[in-house]
Design a protein around this nucleic acid. Structure first.
Lengths: 174, 174
DNA sequence: AGCCGACATGTCAACAGTGGAATGTAGGGT
DNA sequence: ACCCTACATTCCACTGTTGACATGTCGGCT
């Protein structure tokens, strides 16, 4: 149920059409909360009916510009301050690790080395992002920087763990 | 589509009933890939129809004991060795971070401190698990240990990041 | 003998997310 | 004047996940 809050968050900055929102999902939010166009337009309808959004203006090609209402702002704040229950963590990576004993030691090691490589690659990609984004002074990018740092630390951790796990597997074999 | 592979992985060790599988999902796998009973029974049916499982024996109370077939084992191996595309990462935590500018600095700081606390709490919980599990020599627990270590490193990273983010927020305010 | 708790399976409605297709309009460049 | 691209919305079918409900039986304890 976080898509609605993502949309409220985006619209709290400034009004936008569904199309505008899609672009922002594709760029800034894609690594945090991806959404498809069907979802976005569907949710816009629901949120409007629920009174959290309103159609502030109509434009050319049937464009509807949505704006957040006071009620919507209240809901956004509620969600932000509420200490959510620990998010469900599903990890396909860990699921594979759990069943690694069904592979040969060589295959298992190869898998973990691959994990390390993938993590390293994504880490490099994030470093690239860091270099390319122009960090204006707007408050938005402060948050973006926090999220980026999280991603980089996460990838570093994944790589280190995978390399450590390779070692462990080697020890266990002896 | 990983539920099916989780089930194949469990059944590759030994045959089990839906009920047995549920218990294993609730204990060892709950932190990696939770599943509900409706899902498990539904998937058992689908996997059997697809020829990846077979009903190996019938027991008392309508108990059906499922066993993995050769085809199922092949599929499990395929899934384990295939380098999956980078898994979609949705993070409610980061989504909140993105919109932290809609809170007052005090509230935002409180949120991040809360995150640090939650991560620390989960870290302690995992340490507890580590102490309580009896690490037999069976190959299964080797994998379990790898997964556990991942969890602990992850929680440590989350806590450190959150404390760092509090600092950053403080700097930005000045 | 009777009962309770663990064993055991099945079904259903609802929601969230994916991916694709259909449809149409406005505006800028040639 | 024309066309292409970007803008813009809507609908649909399918899979995965959740949670609740319904139903029934075996085995051991009192």
């Amino acid at each position: 149920m976080s898509l609605r809050h993502a949309m409220l968050g985006l619209l709290a900055d400034r009004p936008a059409s569904g199309y505008d929102l899609m672009k922002r999902f594709e760029t800034s939010l894609s690594n945090v909360w991806p959404a498809t166009q069907s979802q976005v337009y569907g949710e816009l309808g629901k949120l409007t009916k629920a009174g959290l959004l309103e159609v502030a203006a109509q434009g050319p090609r049937g464009r509807k510009e949505y704006a957040i209402t006071d009620e919507g702002r209240a809901e956004l704040r509620r969600w932000l301050t509420e200490a959510g229950p620990d998010p469900v963590r599903r990890s396909e990576v860990l699921l594979r690790v759990f069943f690694l004993n069904h592979l040969t030691p060589v295959e298992a090691t190869a898998y973990l080395m691959g994990e390390a490589e993938r993590a390293a690659g994504q880490h490099r990609a994030l470093e690239e992002v860091e270099r390319n984004v122009d960090w204006g002074d707007d408050p938005l990018s402060v948050n973006g920087r926090l999220a980026l740092e999280y991603g980089m630390r996460f990838m570093a951790m994944r790589e280190e763990w995978a390399r450590w796990a390779v070692e462990e597997l080697g020890k266990a074999r002896r």
